[in-house]
C-alpha cells in the first residue's frame, strides 16, 4: 500500500515586512545583522505595518483584531490549490487532520472549522506538534491500514500575530503561511512516500513556546544548535539508508532561518539548485514552511527525483519524509 501526495497547495499573508522597517523600529537590530545572522531578506505577515509601527504588537489580543487574515482563511486557500492540483473536488475529501500553533478559536478546533467551511461531515481533528508537523502528519496517516479515498493534511499559522516587535530577533523571524496536502493510498500521485519518521524529546518542551495570551518566545541559541545537529542527523540517516545523490535529489529543511539552512547544506554538500526553500522571502511559517516550499516547486518535480524533507522544532520534536517523483 503506497501513500501518495496527489496535490499540495500553499498560501501566505500579503503584507511584506522589510529588514529596513525593523531597523527603523530602533530595537537594537539592523538590516545587515538580520541578513548575516538569520538570512531573511523579507517576510510576509498579517499585521498592518502602521499597527506594528505604533504598538509593536504589545497587546496580542489587539493584534488578532487588526490582522488582515486568519489561519483558517490561509488554510482554505492552500486547500483549494491542493485540490486543484490533485484534480479532485473538496467534496471528495474523506478525512482532515490539521495543525495550527496559534488558532483564533479553541472551540471548534481548526480542523472542525475547515471541515465546516468545506461543508464536509467527515472525521476531522487536530494532529499537532508545530514545526515538524509535515513529518508527523505523513507518519500518522501512513500508519492506517485503510484510509478514505482522499485525506487532507493541513498546517496553518499566523505567528506574526504573536510576535513582540520590541524583540530584535523574533520580529525578524516570523512570516505567516499555510500548506495543504491531498494524500491517498488508492490513487497514485505526483509523489509517493518512501519513508517517514517522527520523534521527540519532550524533556525540552519549554524551549519553544507560544503563550496563549502572550507572545512567542524561545531559547534561541539552544534551539538553533539542536536544529542544526538534528537536521544533519536526519539527512545522514536518509543518505545512508537510501543512498541519496545530491546531484539530482532535493533537500527541504525547516524554514526557520536561511543561515542555519546554509550551515546544514554546506555540511551535507547539497548544492544550492537542489536545496528548495522559501524562508528568505516569506520568513519562518512554523510547520507550513517545508511543505509550502515543496508546493511552490510543484511543477519542478520530475519522475525518479527524490525529495527529502527534514524538519525540526517545538516539542522538541523532529522528523523526516522521503518522497519520490512518479
Amino acid at each position: 500500500m503506497t501513500l501518495s501526495i496527489l496535490g499540495i497547495g500553499f498560501s501566505h499573508s500579503d503584507i511584506a515586512l522589510s529588514n529596513q522597517f525593523l531597523e527603523d523600529l530602533d530595537i537594537g537590530t539592523n538590516a545587515q545583522w538580520i541578513i548575516e545572522k538569520i538570512g531573511i531578506e523579507s517576510r510576509v505577515i498579517s499585521l498592518p505595518i502602521p499597527y506594528i509601527e505604533k504598538t509593536r504588537n504589545q497587546d496580542p489580543e489587539e493584534g488578532l483584531k487588526v490582522a488582515t487574515t486568519t489561519p483558517t482563511e490561509l488554510a482554505l486557500k492552500a486547500t483549494s490549490m491542493a485540490c486543484e492540483r490533485a484534480g479532485i473536488s473538496p467534496s471528495q475529501i474523506g478525512m482532515i487532520i490539521c495543525d495550527c500553533v496559534r488558532p483564533n478559536h479553541i472551540i471548534p478546533t481548526e480542523a472542525q472549522r475547515i471541515a465546516k467551511a468545506l461543508d464536509l461531515s467527515i472525521p476531522a481533528f487536530e494532529v499537532l506538534t508545530a514545526c515538524p508537523v509535515f513529518a508527523l502528519h505523513i507518519d500518522f496517516i501512513k500508519r492506517f491500514k485503510e484510509l478514505p479515498e482522499y485525506v487532507l493534511a493541513i498546517t496553518t499559522s499566523a505567528v506574526s500575530q504573536v510576535v513582540n516587535y520590541n524583540d530584535r530577533s523574533d520580529g525578524a523571524i516570523w512570516g505567516d503561511g499555510a500548506s495543504a496536502c491531498i494524500l491517498s493510498t488508492k490513487h497514485l500521485g505526483k509523489l509517493k512516500i518512501i519513508d517517514s519518521e517522527f520523534d521527540a524529546d519532550p524533556t525540552r518542551s519549554n524551549a519553544v513556546v507560544i503563550d496563549r495570551f502572550g507572545w512567542f518566545h524561545q531559547d534561541g541559541r539552544a534551539v538553533r544548535d539542536f536544529s542544526v545537529r538534528q537536521t544533519v542527523r536526519l539527512i545522514k540517516r536518509a543518505e545512508e539508508k537510501f543512498g541519496l545523490d545530491w546531484s539530482k535529489d532535493v533537500f527541504i529543511g525547516h524554514q526557520a532561518n536561511a543561515t542555519m539552512l546554509e550551515q546544514i547544506t554546506t555540511n551535507r554538500k547539497i548544492p544550492e539548485q537542489n536545496h528548495w526553500h522559501n524562508v528568505r522571502c516569506i520568513g519562518n511559517q512554523a510547520g507550513a514552511g517545508a511543505p509550502a516550499s515543496l508546493a511552490m516547486r510543484w511543477d519542478d518535480i520530475k519522475p525518479g527525483m527524490r525529495v527529502l524533507t527534514a524538519v525540526v522544532g517545538a516539542g522538541l520534536s523532529w522528523g523526516s519524509v522521503l518522497m519520490e517523483g512518479v
Binding site: 500553533v101 496559534r102 488558532p103 472551540i107 471548534p108 478546533t109 480542523a111 472542525q112 476531522a124 481533528f125 487536530e126 494532529v127 499537532l128 506538534t129 508545530a130 508527523l136 517522527f198 520523534d199 521527540a200 524529546d201 519532550p202 524533556t203 525540552r204 518542551s205 519549554n206 519553544v208 513556546v209 507560544i210 503563550d211 496563549r212 512567542f216 512554523a286 517545538a314 516539542g315 520534536s317
Partner: peptide, 27 residues
Amino acid sequence: WETCPSEGQRVAGRLGLKVPSYDVTAI
C-alpha cells in the same frame, strides 16, 4: 496555557519521557 508546544509534549516532559509525543484534539 500555551498553544505551542502540544499538551502531550508538556505532560511527557514532566514525566521525563523521550518518546514521540503530540496532540490529537477534538474537544
